[in-house]
């Protein structure tokens, strides 16, 4: 049952992409900024989780929550310091700032702790069981469930709470939202906090699942998650989840067919194709650009 095994491999990989992609897409949806520092927030989350488990001796769930809290704070700080004053600047200025923040976090981390890799403690049992010939590890089940739970919570926050309503309003029309008495700054901060917390969670999950963490670990997953967000339709929250899963499955499929050297290329070929043929993504509706 090879295909079943590969399906499970793909979903596990895809759910991590999806968690990172959610933050990308939320931030883009609300201030039209591609936050390239997002992958590095993911890295910080991983290290916070690592130090929480090895240094503070926390178990997995408290470590996860701590990593999410630290990343939420980091996201808000980044937004307040770097992006807020650029809100009315050209988009390219904000984009370049985002790349600058990304490099600052990466090399700041290297400056403070060195570039050597760290081995994430296996905080979860490494048992696995058989399902119709496929081997499923307990870890991947837990990872998948954590991802699904977080996505459901996010959906509830966005759809059912006041903050979520404000976020949707700001994303729809900033000026109108302001006129309706919505605190736009606070809403944007909340978006960064939630998106960064998800990245932090993804960082911890990544650490558990892939063991090796290092200061530049956020670069490639960050870019892949960006592809996933575009694939699903950037700015659309369910789109990010779908895009992440599709990307994980496609990458696994490419490797499964024996072209593992083409796996990264495949992700970026998807980006190019989607930008040419359906720039609004899988779930996106064609919207006319207002002039």
């Amino acid at each position: 049952m090879d295909w079943l095994q590969q399906l499970i491999n793909g979903i596990s990989l895809g759910s991590i992409y999806a968690l990172i992609a959610l933050g990308y897409t939320m931030v883009y949806g609300i201030i039209r900024l591609i936050n390239f520092a997002h992958g590095d927030v993911f890295m910080i989350g991983s290290f916070v989780g690592f130090y929480a488990i090895t240094g503070l001796g926390l178990s997995i769930i408290p470590a996860l929550i701590l990593a999410m809290a630290v990343c939420a704070l980091l996201g808000v700080v980044i937004e307040r310091i770097a992006y807020k004053r650029l809100r009315n600047a050209s988009r390219i200025a904000a984009l370049i700032t985002a790349i600058g923040v990304s490099l600052l976090i990466e090399y700041g981390t290297i400056y403070f702790r060195g570039a050597q890799l760290e081995v994430f403690p296996s905080a979860l049992p490494t048992k696995s069981f058989n399902l119709w010939g496929a081997t499923i590890s307990v870890q991947s089940i837990l990872i998948l469930s954590i991802s699904v739970v977080l996505m459901i919570i996010l959906q509830i926050v966005v759809r059912r709470t006041k903050v979520g309503k404000a976020m949707r309003a700001v994303s729809h029309d900033v000026e109108a939202a302001r006129l309706m008495g919505i605190n736009v700054d606070r809403t944007i901060s909340a978006t960064f906090a939630i998106g960064s917390a998800l990245a932090g969670a993804a960082g911890v999950i990544f650490g558990i699942y892939y063991t090796k963490i290092e200061p530049l670990m956020g670069v490639i997953p960050g870019l892949k998650a960006f592809v996933a967000a575009v694939l699903g339709g950037i700015g659309i929250i369910p789109g990010a989840a779908i895009g992440g899963l599709v990307l994980g499955l496609v990458e696994t499929l490419v490797s499964a067919l024996g072209y593992s050297n083409w796996r990264d290329a495949a992700a970026f070929i998807i980006l190019i194709l989607i930008l040419i043929f359906k720039p609004s993504g899988i779930l996106g509706k064609n919207s006319r650009e207002k002039v």
Partner: peptide, 16 residues
């Protein structure tokens, strides 16, 4: 089979 350095997910190829 082959991998690239810095890869982290080898499960698909290992399944093969």
């Amino acid at each position: 089979e082959a991998y690239a350095s810095k890869d982290t997910d080898f499960r698909a190829t290992l399944t093969r």
